[in-house]
Simulated assay, not measured.
Amino acid sequence: MRILQALFFPPEQPGGVSSMVPFMLDRFNKRGWEMELFSLPKRVRGKGTGEIRFSTFDWEPYAGHPVVDKYIQTIKDYIWWTKMRIKSTYDLIHAHHPIAGLVMKQLFPDTPLIMTVHSSYERELVLNGKIPADGPEHAFLTSLYRELEEKADQLITVSNSFKHYLSEYVQEPERIGVIPNGFDEKRFRPVHHENQVPQLISVCRLVPAKGLDTLLHACAELKRRGQPFVLHLIGDGPIRTELEELAQQLGIYEETIFYGYMLHPEDFMPFFDVFVLPSRAEAFGSVFAEAALCGLAVVGTNVGGIAEQIEHGTNGLLVPVNDVQALATALEKVIGDPMYRYQLSRVALEKALKTYSMTRVVQQLRNVYRTYRKAPPAE
């Protein structure tokens, strides 16, 4: 059975999906499946031409808005690149981005399409202040979910929370499958260590949706309470300068280290004590599972897929979104009590190994793929 895994970003790009799919593909190929990766290189911009049509809505009333125009052009570019590069046929296509899914079904209408929706682009844009909630760009992007439902043979998402979110925009939400992300256990190696000063770490793109301003304010509160710490921020993004200035204003710049982008943060994470990320929204929150697999105690916000990964007080701590005092108190609790921190991290590691292993994902996807296996010809 020949399967194409269609990404949007190239595999070397950061992010849960791009870092997960190549490892998943390797597992399948070692078991005798034939799989290939496909994605759109960054250098392909403005190449595609032609008319774009959707079967469930008319996109042209939204034309003229930069986000919409860029999205449409990217679809054209993906079509152009796909026609240039794909000369083979496949028994099944598994797409991991709406653009990849829509293009593949347009160009290969007779090939079964599995579509995994990993995150909400429109919600990220709203939280990052790029588009207004319920504006034309938001309406365009959410209309794509109905289009995907119409075109894909099977819709999958990564958490029950995100399935509930999608249910507002599709006709048959009960048909959406849920397969949480999985991670190659061999990549993560917890390390026994003792840090005299508690080490906090956060790994994410530096954008407003991740709530790092709340984290910095919470760390300033920790300092006011006399709690020593060092905060390590791995990642880059448009608000890095703003966050560095905020750390200075709050008097915690000496306790905060900005690393910028790092290709393999999982090699670095096991030497810290607590992973914390007060996101304002997460469809799944892959980095929490990765932190748990690294043996860290985890602290997150009670939203989306984070709340499905963390059982408060058992394998981590949950706090409300934008609540500086609650976050500071949670951090104080885990960094001030090493035994409690160890207990949280041990249970988190056990759950992550059981629930978010790549072995589990491969098994679930194998069952889905076999549904579309062609029957042998009758003799």
Rank of each mutant, 00 (worst) to 15 (best):
M1Q: 08
F9T: 08
P10Q: 12
E12T: 08
Q13P: 00
P14F: 13
M20D: 03
E36C: 01
L37V: 04
L40D: 10
I52G: 05
I52L: 14
R53L: 12
F54P: 08
F54M: 07
G64D: 12
G64P: 12
G64H: 13
H65V: 14
V68L: 02
D77A: 07
Y78L: 10
I86P: 05
K87A: 11
S88E: 15
H94L: 09
A95D: 06
H96C: 08
H96Q: 12
H97L: 12
I99L: 13
A100F: 14
G101T: 11
Q106M: 13
D110R: 14
I114F: 10
E124Q: 13
V126H: 03
N128W: 11
I131D: 05
G135V: 11
H138I: 02
E149I: 01
E149T: 02
E150H: 15
K151F: 01
L155Y: 08
T157F: 11
L166S: 10
S167Q: 09
G177V: 00
R187N: 14
R189S: 14
R205Y: 08
G211V: 05
G211R: 03
D213W: 02
A220R: 06
R225I: 01
G226Q: 04
P228L: 07
L233F: 08
P238R: 15
I239Y: 06
L243H: 03
E245P: 00
E245W: 08
A247C: 09
Q249F: 07
G251L: 06
F258K: 05
F258S: 04
G260C: 10
P265E: 06
E266Y: 12
E266K: 00
M269R: 04
F275I: 05
G285N: 03
T301Y: 01
A307C: 06
T314C: 07
V319F: 00
V319W: 00
V321L: 06
A326Y: 01
L331K: 00
I335A: 00
D337L: 05
V347D: 01
L353E: 11
K354H: 14
L365K: 09
V368C: 09
Y369F: 15
P377S: 04
